[in-house]
Structure formats: structure tokens, C-alpha cells
Nucleic acid binder design. Structure first.
Lengths: 144, 144
DNA sequence: AGAATAATTGCAACTATTTGCAGGAGCAAG
DNA sequence: CTTGCTCCTGCAAATAGTTGCAATTATTCT
């Protein structure tokens, strides 16, 4: 799993500019190894410098998503979560009712990638897939 | 489509109240057979009555999602799309770069549902799955 | 090192979505 | 058809996320 310096070096090699803001945003999110909202990333970077703006955070995060270095997930809570691909591939099972999020093994969707590529020339990012549905508890509740 | 009447009857049977607003919102989205933003649904219903509020539209759409009758997709454009499950199961392949959306055959992810259920007791809604990744064109562009 | 240049930032305005609360209305029971 | 119990709606305010534009600055070329 790429460390933030690897990420940064990669971006630089591709010809993107690495500003202190971008560097700190990347470090914040890559280092946390968790899912963060833009606001959280902002707060985190803010503890290190005053030269950071929330709009920049949003733009940088979306930029990272475009470059395939982070993923953006709407888990139905009204907030969008971002994360790098540091922790291995995995799937989020998001309950549409209680909004609980189960982290499932990425192996679950292994065969999927190849088929997308074959049939549609589309290369899905399967490191942070989110599936919506009903969790076990909500299912039994419902099943009355 | 009398389809929406089925939906409405089902909700009534479950003990939910069917207000004119809910009825019109359901008709709007079920009838369109497309993906719509909350704003579009609002405009659509607005042509029929003045007694509708955008907040109600948002709440009703989220309610439908909870009930498993609609799905909510953040396709990365800053707007959230909603749709019913009228057209058969299918997958959205969303390019993270050009934001193009390819509609793929739902059979693509058939085996996935069973495995989620087996291992996690989680029943995913596979009728409107969205996968993020790189489309063929953006991939070749990148491959320079 | 210094200048040119084009990408990136901050600001502020704007759009999108959520939430609290008070009043309104669907539905069941009588 | 009236009552009462709740759930639902509208409003307005709060929170999230996006965008245009002028100023700034990372990188390249000399």
C-alpha cells in the first residue's frame, strides 16, 4: 500500500503541482487510514497551518478521486466520506435503514472487476465499493 | 403505469400514511423510469400542485430508499440521483474522470448477492448498484 | 537565480441537502 | 362523521458542498 510520499511522488511525476496544502491534505487522509469527511480533513490540516480553505479541501479530495488515489462514498448520512486505498480492498455494506456500515472482505467482489473490463472496457475501483441493502438485524425486524 | 399503485398499496399495507404529496412524488419518479434529482421531482410535482415543499421531497425520497423502493446514487456531480427499481436490475459504471455513466447489465453482479447474504447476513440491493472507476476512453487517454 | 506561464488557492457567493419545530391531516375506532 | 393518536408537512434556519474569479505560487526554461 502506497505511503503518502509515494502518492505525492506519483502525482509530481504525472506533472501535477504539489502545494503545501495538497501535501498536508494527502498526509492527513492517507495517514488516518480511515474514512473522513472533508470537514474532518480540514480540521486536521488546520492544526498544522492557517493557510487552508475548506473549498481547497473539497477540490483536492475530488482531484484525488479523479486520479484514483482516493474514493468518495455517500453512505446516506448526508455527509460524504473520503478515504485513500491504504487499507486493503474492502466492501462497505451500508444498511439503508439503520445506516450501519459493515466492512466486508474485498474478496467478495473479486470476479467482478475482470468482467467489467471484458465487457465494457471499464475498470472499476473495487477498493472502496459501497453496497446498499438491509443488514441482518433490520431484516429480521422487518420479517415479522 | 399502475406500477406506482402497487408501490402505494404496499406502503399502505405496511401502515405508512399515504398523503397526496407522497403519492405524487412516487408517481413522478416511478413514472419517469429515469434517474431524477430531488429538484427535478419537485418541479414535476409542482406542475400539479402548489402544496409541495422541497424538504418534503427530500424526506419522501429518503423514506422510499429506506423502504427499498428507490435507490439513491451519488454519481460525483454534486447532485444526488434517485430512481425506482422499475427498469430491471442494472449497474452504473461511473467514470471518476469524465463522469460518464455506462449502464451495464445487472447480471454482472449476480453471484455477489448470495455471498453477501451467506457471509454477513446482509441483503444488498443490487438493482441500482453504482461502481466507480475508469471508462475505456479515459483509460486509453491515461495510458500515454 | 529570475522570469514566464499556467495550475492552484482563497474568498465569497451560490446551490444542494438536512433538521427542529409547530401546525395540519391520514387513518382507525367508535 | 367525529375524535384522537400519531405521523407528515411546511417553514425557516442550519449544515454541506460547489463555483467564478482575481491573486498567488509551483514548476519550467533560460
Amino acid at each position: 500500500m502506497p505511503h503518502c510520499h509515494t502518492l505525492i511522488a506519483g502525482l509530481r511525476k504525472k506533472g501535477f503541482r504539489i502545494t503545501p496544502q495538497r501535501e498536508m491534505i494527502i498526509e492527513a487522509i492517507a495517514h488516518s487510514g480511515r474514512h473522513m469527511t472533508a470537514e474532518e480533513v480540514y480540521e486536521q490540516v488546520r492544526t498544522r497551518t492557517r493557510s487552508i480553505n475548506l473549498a481547497t479541501v473539497y477540490r483536492t479530495l475530488d482531484f484525488l478521486v479523479e486520479e484514483g488515489l482516493a474514493s468518495r462514498n455517500d453512505l446516506g448520512s448526508g455527509k460524504i466520506f473520503y478515504s485513500t486505498a491504504r487499507h486493503g480492498p474492502h466492501v462497505h455494506l451500508v444498511c439503508r435503514q439503520c445506516h450501519r456500515v459493515i466492512e466486508a472482505d474485498g474478496a467478495l467482489i473479486e470476479p467482478l472487476g475482470e468482467r467489467c473490463l471484458e465487457r465494457y472496457g471499464f475498470e472499476p475501483d473495487l477498493r472502496h465499493l459501497a453496497l446498499t441493502g438491509l443488514c441482518a438485524e433490520c431484516r429480521t425486524e422487518k420479517g415479522t
